[in-house]
């Protein structure tokens, strides 16, 4: 007897398979394929430990030891013409490997090349500041501290840059909820009115599509306006939209819809 084989529709199968189960990777090329990068990498390799290096979309990515970051960037700036730090920040890999990834994106105007230096630090580890090498790292490191809580050693003014100074929590961590934690939810109420005002003001209403048509304290139904605080029954009479009161206003012409001109020619 023949062994049983499932007769699923092979052609339909791709439609039911999750294509992104394994996240797609940008293809990596060998560093040897670019002679400028190859010579840069050989200079780096002479002086420092290089864990990995490859080229992605025309940019070299180099993994180094986190403790070498100042020296590596100094060498790249002074000897290898990478004179601009265009971007730096961190990536939260805490769930995966309990580490942060720090990256520095450098640009060489001379060579017309971009290079990315990456390193990993542990959760409570600090990184050396590169603010003395690149002034642009000043605010970037403050943002990194603000968003991830990663401290930069020897930074001249390590203070929150985006969030308020008295904020608690680091919003770009993957564990931080998008809608904010308890502290964030009551931040402005606690600060302005004090904690005792929480009951009066009430929790945040996060459902932006929420429309309470029975609430005449805060909103009025356009065309069915009632005085504030009236109990809405649903049978409110239709009020015509009027720009002025019935009797008009002293010394001001009453708007007459029939006398108004509708402009159709925009270039009038």
């Amino acid at each position: 007897m023949r062994t049983y084989k499932p007769k699923d529709d092979v052609q339909a199968k791709p439609y039911y398979t999750d294509r992104f189960y394994v996240s797609p990777q940008v293809p990596k090329q060998d560093v040897g394929s670019d002679e400028v990068f190859a010579s840069d990498l050989s200079v780096l390799k002479e002086n420092f430990t290089i864990h990995d290096a490859y080229i992605q979309i025309g940019q070299m990515v180099v993994y180094i030891n986190a403790s070498d970051n100042y020296k590596v960037l100094e060498l790249l700036r002074d000897k290898l013409d990478y004179t601009q730090l265009s971007e730096m920040s961190a990536i939260d890999w805490l769930a995966k490997q309990n580490q942060f990834e720090i990256f520095y994106q450098l640009l060489s105007m001379e060579k017309r090349k971009r290079i990315r230096i990456k390193c990993f630090i542990d959760k409570d580890e600090a990184i050396n500041s590169v603010e003395k090498l690149f002034r642009s790292a000043d605010w970037s490191e403050r943002e990194m501290y603000d968003m991830f809580g990663i401290k930069a050693n020897n930074h001249p003014f390590l203070k929150r840059i985006l969030m308020p100074y008295d904020w608690e929590g680091y919003p770009l961590l993957k564990t931080y909820p998008l809608e904010g934690d308890e502290f964030a939810a009551w931040y402005e109420v606690d600060k302005i009115y004090g904690k005792e005002a929480r009951e009066i003001i009430g929790p945040e209403i996060r459902d932006t599509a929420r429309v309470d048509r029975y609430d005449s304290e805060r909103f009025a139904r356009l065309g069915h306006e009632v005085p504030k605080g009236t109990k809405i029954t649903g049978n409110e009479p239709k009020q015509p939209l009027a720009y002025q009161e019935e009797g008009g206003v002293f010394m001001i012409d009453k708007f007459d819809e029939n006398k108004s001109t509708i402009i159709t020619d925009r270039d009038r």
Binding site: Y176, I205, T208
Partner: peptide, 22 residues
């Protein structure tokens, strides 16, 4: 506008969900 009324599309940690809270 929506943002001042209810927070609008910014359903995030850093946006006040309606200025009438303040």
């Amino acid at each position: 506008g929506s943002c001042a009324n209810t927070g609008g599309m910014f359903n995030t940690y850093s946006t006040v969900q309606g200025v009438d809270r303040i």
